[in-house]
């Protein structure tokens, strides 16, 4: 059996091949094989889907944010229709309905899904583990300021917090405020400042 720990697209995955086979892993293998045998899916489709998800990462969202920082017309289009603006930049986001919410000096946005784990995965890739925890899902809507403090973000009472609970068909991305002192940076350098957490609202962009 091949035992390298790279998926076909070269992304590392957790070393699980050598651990005892679990009941649920057994079910995954069985379900996958039955779906192939029944003609529902092909192995190539499954591999291609894994590669598609591996290719999605916070860097895609960072590129969108940086474009919005340097191009006011693009920013207007992003806030009007974030799905169309992401596709305009060449990102394959599938059927994702995306809304961008803008951070300003007065407003800080925070994204959560209290019902499950809805996340702009078709742009940013799979969500971090903490986004799916009971603690985050329970508390982000009730005490967002305390949650943000745990993430190292202390907001003054003058800043209004807007929490967005992704309860249905929309997904959300925060357009963070452009850091001060970045007037001379290129779009690519700006994108490097944009962290995953800054697009969920649990962080701010890095300082140059």
């Amino acid at each position: 059996m091949p035992h390298d720990h790279l998926s076909p697209s070269g992304h590392p995955y957790r070393k699980d091949d050598d651990h005892p086979l679990t009941y649920w892993q057994t079910m995954e293998i069985a379900v996958r094989e039955l779906l192939v045998e029944k003609g529902v899916l092909t192995p190539a489709q499954i591999t291609a889907q894994i590669e598609t998800m591996d290719a999605r990462s916070p860097a895609n969202g960072a590129a969108v944010v940086a474009r919005a920082w340097v191009d006011p017309d693009f920013k207007a289009r992003l806030l009007q229709d974030a799905s169309a603006a992401s596709r305009e930049m060449g990102f394959d986001i599938g059927p994702l309905h995306l809304i961008a919410v803008e951070n300003t000096k007065e407003i800080h946005n925070l994204i959560v899904c209290t019902l499950c784990s809805c996340y702009p995965r078709n742009l940013l890739g799979l969500p971090p583990d903490w986004y799916k925890t009971r603690a985050y899902r329970s508390r982000a809507v009730r005490e967002p300021r305390k949650v943000l403090e745990e993430f190292g973000l202390s907001l003054s009472k003058e800043t209004q917090i807007r929490v967005h609970d992704s309860t249905a068909d929309m997904r959300y991305i925060v357009l963070p405020a452009r850091p001060d002192g970045t007037d001379n940076l290129s779009e690519a350098d700006l994108a490097a400042l944009v962290t995953r957490d800054s697009m969920i609202g649990t962080g701010l962009p890095k300082q140059p």
């Binding site: 209004q160 917090i161 807007r162 929490v163 967005h164 609970d165 309860t167 068909d169 929309m170």
Partner: peptide, 8 residues
């Protein structure tokens, strides 16, 4: 005065 948005 903080707010919460949800889709209903």
């Amino acid at each position: 005065t903080d707010t919460l948005d949800a889709e209903i």
